[in-house]
């Protein structure tokens, strides 16, 4: 489906797109993104070690020549030098950390920021009385809500899109496996699906307590995902060098880390998919039931 087809087939998306995709906002997002990327790269550049000194200072980005010990335990690290006795920079770790930081940033901006925007938008439609006019239109609830999901966070999508070139370069130099990237992408998309569906459910059905439970649940799920990220990203240099890279590259490791990582990721994905389906189903019902109470929505009230 190309963009023109999407515009013609989903009037709600067109409305959201036209009201938000304004030159002034595009300019602001582009400038903010460029400034952010420059600042991020400069900050990481400042973390590079002094290659000529007797001590490397922050040793995370110094290349390792050998390691006497078992990763995760005490051992001796031997750093790599060039012919002039200058420390060699471990650019791969440097780019890995940039990739890690950008992933965190994307998780904060898109799933969380987007669901906040959706909540605000539906609340505004309800308070100004326009949501019911949408209900009375010939469009299905799915079309309207998909139009909202695609259109309301459109500027956040743009912001993420502007980060993608640097993200792709970081991925390239960190030399991550395709499977690892696919898992990250899946987790990212499922996080968006889950939080956006819950945002719609909570705003359309106006259910206070279950809504809070769902938000809490989704927070735990996403928190679990982020914890997984922290676990991978915050490991020591040596661990990353010997275990992590192997894991990311070949996606297999004798220590079982990768198996655990995969299992946890799949479990999180499964929970996300079930939660998304649940929230999506009831948000459809909520769309047609403006004054529904918890009882009518959650007890599958049947009308003869």
């Amino acid at each position: 489906m190309n963009f023109q087809t999407l515009k013609d087939s989903n009037p709600q998306f067109l409305r959201e797109f036209k009201s938000r995709f304004q030159p002034i906002y595009i300019t602001i997002i582009a400038i903010a993104s460029v400034v952010f990327q420059i600042c991020l790269l400069l900050w990481f550049y400042k973390q590079l070690p002094n290659t000529t000194g007797s001590s490397p200072g922050i040793a995370r980005y110094v290349a390792i020549s050998s390691y006497d010990g078992i990763p995760g335990y005490r051992g001796s690290i031997h750093y790599a030098f060039d012919a002039n006795r200058h420390y060699l920079i471990d650019w791969r770790t440097w780019w890995f950390d940039i990739f890690h930081a950008l992933t965190w940033m994307m998780f904060l901006v898109l799933p969380l920021g987007g669901s906040f925007l959706l909540l605000q938008d539906i609340k505004r439609e309800i308070s100004q009385g326009t949501l019911h006019l949408l209900r009375l239109s010939r469009q299905s609830s799915q079309r309207i809500l998909i139009g909202k999901i695609l259109g309301v966070p459109i500027m956040l999508y743009l912001a993420i899109a502007t980060l993608l070139p640097v993200y792709a370069i970081a991925l390239l130099f960190a030399r991550l496996s395709i499977i690892a990237i696919a898992i990250i992408a899946l987790f990212f998309i499922s996080a968006c699906g889950l939080l956006y569906s819950y945002a719609l459910l909570v705003s359309l059905t106006q259910i206070p307590s279950p809504g809070q439970v769902f938000i809490g649940l989704s927070g735990i799920i996403q928190g679990g995902g982020l914890w997984l990220w922290s676990w991978w990203g915050s490991r020591t240099h040596a661990e990353l060098h010997y275990a992590g890279y192997q894991a990311w590259e070949r996606f297999s490791h004798t220590r079982g880390e990768i198996r655990n990582f995969t299992l946890i990721s799949l479990a999180l994905l499964a929970i996300s998919v079930c939660g998304t389906a649940y929230a999506w189903y009831f948000s459809q019902k909520g769309f047609y039931a403006p004054t529904s109470t918890r009882a009518t929505i959650l007890n599958f009230k049947i009308h003869d």
Binding site: R15, G129, T130, R138, S141, Y288, S292
Partner: peptide, 25 residues
């Protein structure tokens, strides 16, 4: 039928609420 799209009825119906909601932008 409550909580259902009621497409046939929606096509026949024109509703003007007392607060005539509009999109100001």
């Amino acid at each position: 039928v409550p909580n259902q799209p009621n497409d046939r009825v929606k096509g026949r119906l024109g509703y003007l609420p007392d607060d005539f909601p509009l999109y100001n932008d």
